[in-house]
C-alpha cells in the first residue's frame, strides 16, 4: 500500500467528507486547534523557563513540571484530535506542503528532546531540583523545547498561508486574506 493510496483513502473517508461538507465543522475544529496549540505553547513555556532558570527558581522543577505539563498534555491531546480532523479534509495537499513537513519535524524534535530529557538529563534532577541553577543539559533542553514549540505554532500558521484547499471554500468563508 503506497503513501498516496493511504492519503487518498483518508481524504475519501466518510469522516473527511463530513468535515468538508458540514458547516461549520471545519471553522470550529480549526479554531479549537489554534486554541489548543497556543495553550500547549503557553503552558510548556512555564516549564521551559524553569528549566532555563529564568522563572520559578525557588520552586522545584519536578513540581512545576507536574503541575503545568498536565495542562500541556491535555491541550496537546486536543490539538492532535483537531489537527487529525483537519488533515483528513485535504490529506494529499497537507502531506505535500513544506510547512506541514517542517511542522511534523519540529513535533518529532520536541518529542525526542522530551524523551532525552526524561531518560538522561532528569537522572541528575535530585541534585538541582529544589535549589541551585539547572545544569547546562537541562537549560539546553528548555531552550530547545521553547524554540521547537514556537516553531510548531508558527509553522502551523504558515500552513494556512501556503497550503491551498482541495475543496470549494463555502460562501462567507475568508481563508485567503490575510490569514
Amino acid at each position: 500500500m503506497s503513501v498516496e493510496s493511504v492519503l487518498a483513502s483518508i481524504q475519501g473517508s466518510a469522516l473527511a467528507e463530513w468535515m468538508r461538507n458540514t458547516s461549520p465543522a471545519m471553522p470550529i475544529v480549526e479554531a479549537t486547534h489554534v486554541l489548543a496549540a497556543v495553550m500547549v505553547f503557553g503552558t510548556v513555556l512555564i516549564a521551559d523557563l524553569r528549566l532555563l532558570g529564568l522563572a520559578d527558581s525557588t520552586r522545584p522543577f519536578s513540581r512545576v513540571g507536574r503541575e503545568t505539563l498536565r495542562l500541556t498534555w491535555l491541550a496537546f491531546g486536543v490539538s492532535v484530535i483537531t489537527g487529525s480532523l483537519m488533515f483528513t479534509t485535504s490529506a494529499q495537499t497537507y502531506f505535500a506542503n513544506t510547512a506541514f513537513q517542517f511542522k511534523a519535524l519540529a513535533l518529532l524534535g520536541a518529542g525526542l528532546n522530551m524523551t532525552v530529557f526524561q531518560l538522561v538529563t532528569a537522572r541528575a534532577l535530585p541534585a538541582w531540583d529544589a535549589s541551585g541553577p539547572p545544569p547546562r543539559a537541562a537549560r539546553a533542553a528548555g531552550l530547545i523545547s521553547l524554540l521547537l514549540w514556537a516553531a510548531v505554532v508558527l509553522l502551523g500558521r504558515w500552513i494556512g498561508f501556503t497550503k491551498g484547499y482541495d475543496f470549494t471554500i463555502p460562501p462567507g468563508v475568508d481563508l485567503t486574506v490575510p490569514g
Binding site: 497556543v38 495553550m39 503557553g42 503552558t43 490569514g179
Partner: peptide, 22 residues
Amino acid sequence: FIRLLQATHLLTAGVVAGAAAM
C-alpha cells in the same frame, strides 16, 4: 510585516492564555 504581526500575535496569545490559566 503582516506575517510577522500574525506570528507575534499568535505566540503572545499563548503566553496570555498560559499566564491567565495559572
